Amino acid sequence: MHRHVVFVVFPDALILDLSGPLAAFELSCESAPRDMAPYRLTVASIAGGLVRTSSGLEIMTRQIHEVDDVDTLVVVGGPGVHEAARQPQLVQWLSDNASRARRLCSVCTGAFVLASAGLLKQRKVVTHWGSCQLLQDSYPDVRVSPDAIYERDGSIWTSAGVTAGIDLALAMIEEDRGHFEAIRVAKRLVVFLKRAGGQAQFSVPLALQEADERGFESLHRWMQDHLDKDLRVEVLAGRVAMSPRTFARIYAARTGRTPAKVVEDMRLEAARRALEETRQSVKEIANRCGFLDEERMRRAFRRRLGIAPHDYRAKFGARGLDGGEAGQAHGR
C-alpha cells in the first residue's frame, strides 16, 4: 500500500530540511517495483511551481490544494519559516487538512508553522535548539522539549535541527516497515548511528564552542580528559591562574553556565555514551565518569534526563547488549 508523504515548503526553506528526510523515504522504496513502492512522495507549496530555497536552489512543487490522500504531512523549516507562519493560506490549509493525515510532522523550525496553525497546543514538541526558547515564548500552550532529537506526541512528530529530520524519517520508516528496514536505510544514507528520540540533539563540546573561542578551549579539553578527577571550582580556577571567585564570574559570563553545571553535563554525556556503546557496568561507568558511585549517577540521570541509567541503556544501548549480556552490563 502506498503511503503518501507530502513535504510542505515555502520561499527560503532550508534545502537539507527537505532533502534529508525525503531521501530516507526514497531509499525505502528502492527495492520495490514502482507500482508497489511503500511510499509516494510529493513536495508541495501554496502556489505550486518553482520555490526558491534559502540556498538559491529552486525546487519544483505541486500546489498544495491539489494534494489529496495524505498519510504523512511534513512541514520543513528554514530562514523563511516565520514569514510562512504568517501566510493565511498556508496556515488555514494546515488547520483544515491536518486531521486528514495519519501523521503531522515538522522538521527543525517547521514547528513554528504548525504552532501558528494551532496544531501543537498542549503537545510535547521540539525544534532546533537555538529556537526552542522562542517557540516556547511565542506559543506558551506548547510544551517544548529543548534537548530531544525528535518528539512524538500522538500523531504529532517534530524534530530538532536540520539533520535530525533524517532521524525523524527513520523513526517513521521503522514504525511503518520495521526495525531492520530502518537500519538498512540508515546504512544506505551512511548515517553513523540511528539516534533515538530521547537522545540529546547536540554535544557538550558543541554547546561550549563559543566559550572555547573566548579562551577556555584548553581547559575544556583537560576537563574532558580528567572527568574522574576533582573538578571543583578551586581546581579549575587554578588551571587558568584565576581566583575561584573571578573564575566563576568570568566563566559564567562567557558560557552562560556555572562551572559545576558544565562538569555535570560533561560527565552525563560521557556516561550516556558509555551506556550506549560499551558493556561496562553502571558502577564502572559511574567511577570512570567522576560520579564516585552508582547512586550519585542515578540521581543525576533522574534529575537531568528523567530516566535511570539502567533504563537508559535498555532504551538506547546497542542491541548486542540484550538478554543475559544486558543484565551483566547493567551490573545486576
Rank of each mutant, 00 (worst) to 15 (best):
V5W: 02
V6S: 02
F10W: 08
A13R: 04
A13Q: 05
L14T: 10
I15Q: 07
L18I: 01
L18R: 02
E30Q: 14
D35I: 09
L41Q: 07
T42I: 07
G49C: 07
G49A: 06
S54Y: 03
G56V: 09
V67N: 03
V70N: 00
D71I: 14
D71F: 15
G78N: 07
V81C: 04
A85S: 08
W93M: 07
S95F: 04
S95W: 11
A98Y: 04
R100F: 04
R103Y: 08
C105A: 14
S106C: 10
S106G: 12
S106W: 01
L114E: 02
G118M: 05
K121W: 07
Q136A: 10
D137T: 12
S138L: 12
P140A: 06
P146G: 11
W157V: 14
S159V: 00
T163Q: 00
A169Q: 00
G178V: 01
F180C: 09
R184E: 12
R184D: 13
V190G: 01
V190Y: 00
F192I: 09
G198F: 01
A200Q: 15
F202R: 12
L206C: 13
D212A: 10
R221L: 06
M223G: 04
Q224A: 15
H226I: 02
L227V: 03
L231D: 01
S243H: 05
R249M: 06
A252W: 03
A253E: 15
T255H: 12
P259F: 03
P259D: 02
D265L: 05
R267P: 14
E269Q: 15
A274F: 05
T278L: 15
T278N: 14
Q280T: 06
I285C: 08
G290A: 09
E295P: 01
M297G: 04
F301V: 03
A308N: 10
D311F: 09
K315V: 12
G317W: 06
D322A: 15
D322F: 14
G327T: 10
